[in-house]
Design a protein around this nucleic acid. Structure first.
Length: 431
RNA sequence: GCCCGAGUGGUGUAGCGGCUAGCAUGCGAGCCUGUCACGCUCGCGACCCGGGUUCGAGUCCCGGCUCGGGCGCCA
């Protein structure tokens, strides 16, 4: 064991105890015969003191000359600190440099000098030594964990469907294609059809996975690879799954608030558990509101980014947009019985940001074939999917939450790249 | 893909026709026994690339590349 304690975990109860910590050197300050080394690890930092008069020359100069950000193991006795903000520190009797950092480093992970996001992403591993940047991913971990727990409690079974698919159907976004032993294959943009098929036997399923979209987007909220939280529930309608989304999101907010106090403080970001149910806005009313704001839009047009920005100012926090024209929703979304021109799909917004979309699905084969036609797609290329509708597919509903976008809300970050470890966008394929 | 803006030491920036190209941080050398973004002294290190205008170009013009913002595209 290189390490007996974490740097951030030293307490007064450790006074007098010999400990070993392992981390990286954040700072070296020398005052005559006294040498202060700040050592950080994932848990926080500890101050280490070397006294020239009490330790060997070799050790003192090794400590004095260790390049910052090098990995070190330090042994010493915990003593009371005279530092203003510290209770305890380590009076060192050994320091081993286990891996030296070569200077100049591409950025300063202590955050004394800011670094542009682009450069930070080029050096992501060391960028995460900055606790503010690491905090984002500790929160992300908590979000994933709570999402799994909450969906599990709601009776969902977690599944993993394939990312490599043979049909580029579905319309909408462009897919990345690849060579599959001489056949053309594609990277999935969504588990949509698979998760619908699974409701036939597994009833309620969810999947958290990476999906791909070959759009040449150049924005702060789009990536070529993103993480989607998908659910699909048998014998459920759109209202049922909207409620599930509300409970899930409120639950995630609550748990992040409870267990990520330090991380949120580091980010200087506050979150408030949203009240449920969320506000619900009819598409038609949204159009009216936009027209009142002087925006030139007519019923039936899709809402553009700038329109969503306006709506986001009028409706703070989470809100649903419902009762969309059927023509604006994908073929697998059910339409209303009384008014087939109105869809049973919904979008979830957080201000201007689209967080999720979903709806009641079509479960009648003839309706689905008709809807495919209306969407300009060929039923022929959906043979594998269509056949399940002969096998007693239950009525079902579901949605997909963009996890990265939800992370933007939870961390207050304005650029989606901040909340993804190694983002892939139009111009970035590495590291 | 379109529009706008920006590229200056490792990092973040100031300068916008003639400067020994300034500052912060970093790095190197030195002084200091309680620092804590320690302090102080000295030093190191930079004008994105290619054309053009001009006596003279980080500075102005054109093109390229890269980045940022907005738009568009977008299960």
């Amino acid at each position: 064991m290189l390490r007996t304690h974490y740097a951030g975990g030293l307490k007064e109860t450790d006074l007098g105890r010999e400990v070993r910590i392992a981390g990286w050197v954040e700072d070296v300050r020398i005052l005559g015969s006294l040498l202060f080394v700040t050592v950080r690890d994932v848990s926080g930092k500890a101050q280490v003191v070397f006294n020239r008069k009490e330790v060997e020359n070799a050790l003192f100069s090794r400590a004095k000359n260790v390049p910052r950000q090098s990995s070190v193991v330090i042994k010493g006795i915990v003593q009371e600190s005279r530092a203003k903000e510290l209770r305890v520190e380590i009076k060192a009797n050994d320091l081993q440099v286990v891996s030296e950092a070569i200077h100049p480093l591409p950025l300063d992970p202590t955050g004394r000098v800011p670094t542009s996001i682009d450069l930070r992403l080029d050096s992501r591993a060391i960028d995460l030594r900055n606790p503010k940047n690491a905090a984002v991913f500790k929160i992300r971990h908590k979000v994933l964990q709570s999402t799994r727990n909450l969906l599990n409690q709601m009776g969902f079974t977690e599944v993993s469907t394939s990312r490599i698919i043979g049909q580029a159907a579905e319309g909408g976004a462009n897919l990345f294609s690849l060579d599959y032993f001489g056949d053309k294959a594609y990277l999935a943009q969504s588990p949509q059809l698979y998760k619908e098929q699974l409701t036939l036997a597994l009833d309620r399923v969810f999947e958290i996975g990476n999906f791909f979209r070959a759009e040449k987007s150049n924005t702060r909220k789009h990536l070529s690879e993103f993480v989607s939280v998908d659910i699909e529930a048998a014998f459920a309608d759109e209202n049922d799954v909207m409620q599930i989304a509300e409970n899930l999101i409120a639950g995630v907010f609550k748990q992040v608030n409870e267990s990520c106090v330090e991380e949120l403080k580091l980010l200087g970001h506050r979150i408030q558990e949203p009240n449920t149910p969320f506000e619900s806005l009819n598409y038609g009313d949204a159009i009216e509101e936009l027209r009142r704001e002087g925006i030139n839009i007519t019923y039936g047009q899709d809402l553009t980014d700038s329109m969503l920005r306006v709506l986001g100012k009028l409706h703070r926090g989470f809100f649903w947009i419902v009762n969309w024209p059927s023509s604006l929703k994908p073929f697998y979304i059910e339409v209303r019985n009384d008014k087939p021109e109105i869809s049973r799909g919904f979008d979830l917004q957080y201000g201007y940001l689209e967080i999720a979309s979903g709806g009641m699905r079509v479960s009648s084969k003839t309706t689905l074939i008709r809807r495919l036609g209306e969407a300009g797609l060929e039923a022929k290329s959906f043979t594998d999917h269509l056949k399940i509708f002969d096998w007693g597919v239950p009525p079902h509903s579901g949605w997909a939450i963009g996890l990265d976008r939800l992370m933007m809300v939870l961390t207050g970050k304005k650029n989606i790249r901040e909340v993804v470890l190694f983002p892939r966008d139009r111009y970035r394929l590495t590291p």
